Simulated assay, not measured.
Amino acid sequence: MEKKTSLPTQFRLAVAQRSTAECLGLFADALGLFRDRGIDFQLVAFETAAERGVQGLLSGEWDYIEIGITPLVRLRADGHDPAIVVGTTPVNTNFLMGRRDIGKIADLAGRRIGCLSLGGQTAAAARAVLSPHGIADAVKLVPLLTYSKIFDSIASGEIEGAILAGDIRFPGEVHHGMHVLADIGAVTGMPGTCVVTTRREIERNPGLARRVVRTYVDAVQAFKTRHEAAKSFLADLLRFDADTIERVYTHYRSVFQLMPRPSLPNIQIGIDEVARERPEAARITPGDLVEPRFLDEIERAAR
């Protein structure tokens, strides 16, 4: 463990959505892992969704955010400098879900699908999974910002389907009569979630970035091995019943990587998807979006 500094270093984090894949920092804070490394953890914003999340990162309202990778491709195409330092999930863990009367993906033609935002990971996932069926332009995406609003809209009949995170799909099935139409990661290979900052912020405080990355590695290890602590955290975060929490924990325990590297091949798929609408994005490479040096250091030290 690193020697603590006399004055903690401020780590200002935002979280784009309430889901296990994007809340590893909150788990680390709950266990005191940031404090152990002399970091003053501050959750500045929660459930920002993608557009607000990247806006706050660029304006300096927060210095790091847990978010889906796809919006960062657009950010880079706009000339900004996002730098992914941790890949919390290597591949997209969202699911395309349908209401009871939607039997297959093709049945969504002319219908409405709820997503968190139009510029974020959930909308990109929807377009990627609908395109091979030829109905991407025949489905209306409805931005609803939070999963609770998505469930309200399913209940009211405002939408017939939704993009749900891997953990949120369980209550969708149990309490809202929804069912899986597609595992988006398995079907499309779209990239997953990450911890991202800017290259400017890394240059300003590389020591903080190094300690933050090491804390996330510690958090993954703790999630996989401290079963009861992880499930207690998930129960507080998600407010699901015990059986559902057990299913969520089992799912993400298998998804999280001990060395949480972003997957470059999956990021390339995300770049290709964005380039369909933004041709200039085709010039971006996965390496343009990733800063691997801190994970490299940890891996070398472990040999």
Rank of each mutant, 00 (worst) to 15 (best):
N94I: 06
K149P: 07
D29N: 15
I267C: 07
L264T: 07
G53Y: 11
V220G: 05
F95S: 12
N94V: 04
G110K: 00
A49L: 10
D101K: 09
A301P: 14
L33T: 00
G110L: 00
G172D: 05
D137E: 13
A235F: 09
E246W: 04
Q121V: 13
G32Y: 00
R247L: 12
T225M: 14
D81G: 08
A219K: 02
R210C: 08
G119D: 11
T198K: 06
D40Y: 03
S59E: 15
R12L: 12
A235G: 13
S254W: 04
A165K: 06
M1G: 15
I154Y: 03
G192T: 10
Y249P: 05
V220P: 01
L118G: 12
T285D: 09
S153K: 05
E47R: 15
G172F: 01
I163Y: 02
I135M: 02
Q10Y: 13
G157C: 00
P171L: 04
R112K: 03
S232E: 15
R276G: 11
E66M: 04
A162R: 00
R239P: 13
M259L: 15
I102F: 09
V217N: 06
T225K: 14
M190D: 02
A186K: 09
R37F: 13
E158M: 04
I150N: 00
T250G: 14
F34A: 04
L13D: 07
R276L: 11
L289V: 03
T285M: 09
D137L: 11
G177N: 10
L24N: 02
D167I: 04
Q17K: 14
S6W: 15
I269D: 07
R303W: 14
L208H: 07
D272E: 14
R204A: 15
I184L: 07
A30T: 14
L145I: 14
E61F: 14
R18Q: 15
G185H: 10
G68A: 01
H179K: 05
E203F: 07
V255W: 02
D167P: 01
R210H: 11
G161R: 01
L289Q: 03
V129W: 08
S153R: 02
E246F: 04
P206C: 10
I67Y: 08
E299W: 12
E47K: 11
L144A: 05
L24C: 06
Y252F: 12
I39H: 03
A302F: 05
Y252Q: 03
G166N: 06
R210P: 11
V213C: 01
F41P: 01
D107F: 03
S148V: 14
E277C: 12
V248A: 02
K3L: 15
A50D: 10
R293G: 08
I65F: 07
Y252S: 03
E228V: 09
A123Y: 11
A302G: 10
R37Q: 12
D218E: 07
R278D: 15
V213T: 05
T197P: 05
Y252I: 12
V91S: 13
R35P: 06
